[in-house]
């Protein structure tokens, strides 16, 4: 008897991150995400042409709030974002996420010019595409991300994040300098759709939008994110064009702020080894969101990233290996 199968009437849009010399950029290779006509990894009944991608998070300034487990692997590069980026690429990173946390008033108050300068140095040091994450919605973020957008014209960044109250400036910067933008809404199908409509109403191309559904970490709202992603994806594959964008999930930031990754084994002996428990916290958050449709996972711990890359390999098994984009090397 044939199994009841899932028939999609829509396709998730393919979003390209990273500008190669052909685009007027300097990335060695672009990363593409999206393109599905099936539920996540259901390649037995539809297409999932592109592999989900892990982006390594690169803080712009020493992340003093990162816990011991996270500091250890980055010991040699902890104070140097450029060295940090090289370190990540040497370990196989195909995409980086520069977190401009230091631009926040209470975290260093870096100027837009300083942030743009750091971005330039990063672009010079590595050839992989970049996500650039601002310090949070508001005037400062608009200023900083606009400066970055201009400094990286042609590099096709993914700028994060536009929100309903503050999307026009980012959309304008994206259009003017050819970048993609994430659209962040608080775990809600209708708000998500509404922001996508608002952005495209300003003639922002829908294939330059990546949905940030707002990630709840494991044990702290993960199930809301998981289900809203499943609902958005079902509606998108059902034909709703204003939801047919790939997802980005900020897994690392949400996973590593919770108590369960920090409590030492001496205090809770039954919880087991703290470092591995913490790494698994990040892995578990990522693996569940992959099953809900995540296309870009922004992550922190190298061991967690390695395990998730391996998990993606396993879930993509049995078909042609996917390259994000044919390589266009410079010179």
């Amino acid at each position: 008897m044939t199994a009841p199968s899932f028939r999609a009437s829509g396709r998730i849009r393919t979003v390209r991150i990273g500008g190669t010399p052909a685009d007027g950029g300097s990335r060695g290779e672009a990363v593409e995400v999206g393109g599905e006509t099936c539920l996540p990894f259901h390649r037995f009944e539809g297409e999932m042409p592109l592999r989900p991608v892990v982006a390594w998070e690169i803080p712009d300034s020493t992340p003093v709030d990162w816990c011991e487990t996270l500091r250890e692997p980055y010991a040699g590069v902890f104070d140097d974002p450029v060295a940090w980026a090289r370190f990540a690429v040497e370990r196989g990173a195909r995409l980086l996420c520069l977190d401009l946390r230091g631009a926040a008033a209470d975290k260093g108050n870096r100027s837009a010019a300083e942030s743009a300068d750091l971005l330039r140095r990063l672009l010079g040091a590595v050839k992989v595409p970049l996500i650039v994450k601002g310090p949070g919605p508001g005037e400062r973020q608009n200023e900083v991300l606009t400066a970055c957008a201009e400094a990286a014209q042609g590099e096709r960044l993914l700028l994060a994040s536009a929100v309903e109250e503050e999307y026009k400036t980012l959309v304008a910067a994206g259009v003017a300098f050819g970048h993609a933008v994430t659209a962040e809404t608080p775990i809600d199908v209708n708000l998500c759709k509404q922001l996508n409509i608002l952005m495209t109403d300003l003639h922002f191309p829908p294939d330059s939008i990546v949905i940030d559904p707002l990630t709840g970490g494991l044990g702290y709202g993960l199930e809301y994110t998981y289900s809203v992603m499943e609902r958005i994806r079902l509606q998108a594959l059902g034909g709703d064009e204003m939801l047919q964008m790939p997802f980005i999930c900020f897994v690392g930031a949400e996973s590593w702020k919770v108590k369960e990754v920090k409590v030492p084994e001496e205090r809770e002996p039954s919880w087991g080894d703290r470092a591995r428990r913490g790494v698994l916290w990040e892995i578990t958050t990522a693996v569940s969101l992959l099953h809900a449709g995540a296309a870009v996972l922004v992550m922190r711990h190298p061991a967690a990233i390695a395990a998730v890359e391996k998990a993606i390999d396993g879930l993509m098994e049995g078909t042609e290996p996917q390259r994000a984009q044919r390589t266009l090397r410079m010179g």
């Binding site: 289900s227 369960e260 039954s270 919880w271 080894d273 428990r277 698994l280």
Partner: peptide, 20 residues
């Protein structure tokens, strides 16, 4: 099985099986 696996996995189960 190792003890450090239990809390993350059982927390995931709690999340997924919470009644929406």
């Amino acid at each position: 099985p190792e003890p450090w696996q239990y809390l993350p996995l059982l927390t995931l189960r709690q999340n997924i099986y919470t009644d929406p």
